[in-house]
């Protein structure tokens, strides 16, 4: 069964989910490499939680306007607005107060989540119990992935990968040597924003599939695994994308072969296995400064 699933011969739906999860893993691995190099591994956690009040707000707004509240693109626009506000709050707290980035991240993610929960209870109280499906954004689900979803994930992943390739040189320079980058006239704040937008794109595209809590793992774990065995930034990003893609493929195939096995959790555990393997391969090798 697992072999059939891995070789995409388990029917149309399983194939669709497997390819979608693999492409999502690929894009998340590549973008996550940039994020990890910049030392911002917990920012996607805050971003993902901040999409929840945005999603719920969009759901309520669409309901009030008499539109179909399950319109996925419009829901995701709401999620994007929520995440952008969360990022702005995070920036304001770290830049303008004495709080550390760590505290600001924890504050933003818990308040945003609380706001999302409150809106969710409002939605549940609407006549007809129309909240069904919104909880899925928290834990994710690949079960209902349709051809259209897979195409959206694939298309968005291509755009993100292309944008990342175009911006790669300034992003890595900034990650390794911010002083030098500034001296060369790079606007580091602007490039940080570009990186945040790419991460946000991956979070939004992957949210319904991976869920707000585990999407972080798709961004961080493959990147750190790659970082342990490759020291050049480009090679690290390529390996990270490869690990992410392979884990997505494997996780989706495994849950297609054994129904009831939660896809995203398996992907995350597979990524951790890759990390453990990378740590073994690395062995006691000394820390080498990346170039």
């Amino acid at each position: 069964m697992l072999w059939q699933a891995l070789t995409l011969s388990l029917g149309y739906n399983a194939t669709l989910v497997t390819l979608g999860a693999a492409v999502l893993g690929l894009a998340a691995g590549a973008v996550g490499a940039g994020m990890v190099l910049r030392g911002r591994a917990l920012v996607p956690d805050a971003l993902a939680h901040a999409t929840l009040p945005g999603l719920a707000g969009a759901f309520l707004a669409l309901t009030a306007l008499g539109a179909d509240p399950r319109n996925l693109p419009l829901l995701l626009v709401g999620g994007g607005i929520g995440a952008a506000l969360g990022l702005a709050a995070l920036r304001a707290l770290t830049a303008r107060t004495r709080l550390t980035e760590d505290t600001a991240t924890a504050a933003v993610l818990s308040v945003a989540y609380g706001g999302g929960l409150v809106l969710l209870t409002v939605i549940q109280a609407l006549p007809g119990g129309r909240a069904a499906g919104l909880e899925g954004f928290l834990l994710g689900s690949t079960a209902g992935m349709l051809r259209q979803d897979a195409l959206v994930i694939g298309g968005a992943a291509m755009v993100v990968l292309l944008a990342l390739a175009l911006c790669w040189r300034p992003l890595t320079l900034m990650a390794f040597d911010p002083m030098q980058a500034r001296a060369m006239g790079l606007r580091t704040a602007a490039w940080d924003a570009v990186l945040a937008i790419l991460v946000l794109a991956v979070v939004l595209v992957g949210l319904r599939v991976a869920g707000a809590i585990l999407i972080v793992a798709l961004l961080v774990t493959p990147a750190v695994a790659a970082r342990l065995v490759v020291s050049r930034a480009g090679g690290m990003a390529a390996l990270s994308a490869l690990i992410g893609g392979a884990c997505g493929w494997f996780g989706a195939a495994a849950s297609a072969a054994a129904p009831g096995l939660p896809t995203v959790a398996v992907i995350v555990l597979a990524a951790f296995a890759a990390l453990a393997a990378a740590a073994l391969v690395r062995g006691g090798r000394a820390w080498t400064a990346p170039s």
């Binding site: 591994a41 917990l42 809590i213 961080v220 750190v224 970082r227 939660p262 555990l269 951790f272 690395r282």
Partner: peptide
């Protein structure tokens, strides 16, 4: 995870909690 190589504390934390949470989801299901 931090001892395995040049891994920032935040990244190590993100990996460890998502991995354990995923394990919990699998165990519950």
């Amino acid at each position: 995870i931090r001892r395995a190589g040049p891994v920032a504390p935040a990244a190590a934390m993100a990996i460890s909690f998502t991995t354990l949470f995923a394990l919990g989801v699998v165990m519950v299901e």
